[in-house]
């Protein structure tokens, strides 16, 4: 066999091997556990790093999840604002409306990653408690804005409210 024929043969073998390897089933990393009541994390509605994440329906700012925190915890060294505004978003996993607290993380430079501005149910700044254009880092030691979280604090319009209701709650 000529040297050319031999080279071609080796080349073909390599290509065949490569294709075979690609077609083999790959052992993937364990998919993240689906938190009860949360949509599939592999979908944008279930991925806290995605703008379409269901809780972010009225968020305005950098996602804490992208800046060293998570969707419920602030990045290291920041201070979570106490005063904030609370909106409502629909969870596609169960169709319920949840009350979301959009606390800001404060006292550090802007996170700069994953800027998301959505305005579902948001209202102008003269309706203070429904506005996300306000820097809500008031009441912390610094108004320097870093990022924003989205914490579920209640279930809206549900027969059985998940929120503890001291007092009779009836009227």
């Amino acid at each position: 066999m000529s040297w050319m024929g031999r080279s071609l043969g080796i080349l073909c073998a390599l290509v065949l091997a490569g294709v075979t390897v690609l077609l083999l089933p790959v052992v993937r990393a364990e998919p993240p556990a689906v938190q009860a009541g949360e949509p599939d994390p592999s979908t944008p509605e279930g991925d806290p790093g995605a703008a379409e994440y269901w809780r972010y329906c009225a968020i305005d700012g950098y996602l804490a999840d992208c800046c060293g925190g998570t969707h419920t915890t602030c990045p290291p060294g920041t201070e979570m604002s106490t005063v904030t505004w609370l909106g409502t978003c629909t969870n596609p996993a169960d169709g319920k409306d949840y009350v979301i607290s959009y606390n800001d993380c404060c006292g550090k430079p802007p996170g700069g990653r994953c800027f998301v501005r959505r305005t579902e149910g948001e209202r102008p700044a003269y309706v203070t408690h429904k506005n996300n254009d306000i820097n809500w880092c008031m009441g912390t030691s610094s108004i320097a804005y870093n990022s924003t979280v989205a914490v579920v604090v209640g279930v809206a319009a549900s027969e059985q409210s998940d929120v503890s209701d001291p007092g009779t709650g009836e009227e």
Binding site: D60, A125, D133, I134, N135, C137, I143, Y145
Partner: peptide, 8 residues
């Protein structure tokens, strides 16, 4: 007030 818009 620190605002993200420029009016008012």
């Amino acid at each position: 007030a620190i605002l993200a818009f420029t009016s008012g």
